[in-house]
């Protein structure tokens, strides 16, 4: 079967910045595929190339069998895009927004209104249907935006950071929506900065950094590639972190790195038998532990193993990353 997406050495430059720097991707049909990467990694640019909003500077990309540069119209006829920033008309009501998009996709007025009603009900927006979109919360806007991409059923749906900025409840709603879309047979390519999100939704994923794919596989495979399991700790008192790092390194004899917030730590555990000993040593040293989890490495660990820095560091230093590219 023709894959949903196939790219070879795809390149997109903005001036000196190589936003996409030779990406090879192969996405089979009928699943959720995740593009995972920190700010400025090139996720949006990749999606815009695949949705024919940008023209590649090098390499090729085929979407559902059509070359994006040579047959953009054929690609557009089969895909839908929900961009990173909610592209709804804030002056129009939710209902009008959906009627507008339904009309553009070829529905007659009557059919367009019916489809808009259906979608508003399905996305839990029926009560706000007659209100201007500018009055919507971030979560409602996001749902309206995704609904607009499902007016007709695309073979492939692009979702660019569908849950960024949403609260946990809205995020769960969007996750349910994505799962339902995929269950109905539409291929979904979604980008995210959240390792947890990729882990939960995507069957396979590509980790991208500086416009390149640095790892690809199922999240299980990626975790296995890190090797050993991990011990995640959050301390009561962040000032004890250096000390805790020292203790864990001594007892477990393995690498220990700092977590996303100032009070957390992650340690490789090659020998689970020493786990109890490590925890006891922390207690003996007067280091109070607020949270403790032991298990498979998270995608954060994967990112660390691949790049030598946590994903949070990458987020904190987008300027440095462009410098390196330039």
């Amino acid at each position: 079967m023709i894959p949903a997406i196939e790219t070879t050495a795809l390149v997109k430059r903005f001036g000196e910045t190589r936003a996409v720097d030779g990406i090879d991707l192969r996405v089979e049909r009928g699943a959720v595929y995740g593009l995972l990467g920190p700010n400025g990694a090139g996720k949006t640019t990749t999606i815009r190339l695949l949705a024919t909003l940008l023209r590649p500077d090098g390499g090729t990309a085929r979407v559902l069998g059509h070359d994006v540069a040579r047959e953009p119209a054929a690609v557009r006829a089969k895909v839908c895009l929900t961009g990173q920033f909610a592209s709804v008309d804030e002056d129009l009501t939710g209902h009008e927004n959906l009627v507008l998009v339904a009309r553009l996709f070829g529905h007659a007025w009557k059919g367009a209104r019916a489809r808009a009603d259906e979608l508003l009900a399905a996305f839990d927006l029926a009560d706000a249907a007659g209100k201007q979109a500018r009055t919507y919360s971030g979560g409602m806007r996001r749902r309206l935006d995704i609904a607009a991409s499902l007016v007709v059923t695309p073979e492939l749906l692009f979702l660019d950071e569908p849950t960024t900025g949403l609260d946990p409840r809205s995020r769960n709603q969007v996750w349910d929506i994505v799962r339902a879309i995929a269950a109905d047979g539409t291929t979904v390519l979604l980008t995210t900065q959240y390792l947890e999100e990729a882990d939960r939704l995507a069957g396979r994923l590509a980790v991208i950094d500086h416009g390149r794919v640095i790892a690809e596989g199922t999240s299980q495979e990626l975790k296995r590639s890190v090797g050993s399991n991990a011990l995640h700790l959050r301390l009561d008192d962040a000032s004890h972190r250096a000390e805790a790092r020292h203790v864990l390194r001594r007892v477990l004899g393995a690498e220990v790195h700092d977590g996303a917030d100032a009070a957390s730590l992650t340690a490789r555990v090659h020998d689970p038998a020493r786990l109890a000993e490590a925890v006891a040593a922390l207690g003996a040293g007067g280091i109070a532990v607020a949270e403790l989890a032991y298990g498979q490495p998270s995608l954060d660990d994967v990112f660390f193993a691949l790049t030598g820095r946590g994903s949070e560091d990458a987020v904190a230093a987008p300027a440095a990353s462009t410098e390196k590219v330039a």
């Binding site: 006829a77 008309d89 129009l92 009008e96 507008l100 009309r103 553009l104 996709f105 070829g106 529905h107 007659a108 059919g111 489809r115 979608l119 009900a121 399905a122 996305f123 499902l150 007016v151 007709v152 059923t153 929506i177 339902a180 879309i181 109905d184 047979g185 539409t186």
Partner: peptide
């Protein structure tokens, strides 16, 4: 409930229909 359309996908709007729709907007 299924989120996806149950009716077949219509052909996209003609240039004229698209222009009128965007004028309506």
């Amino acid at each position: 409930m299924s989120l996806l359309a149950t009716t077949p996908r219509p052909p996209a709007a003609s240039p004229w229909a698209a222009t009128l729709t965007l004028g309506w907007r």
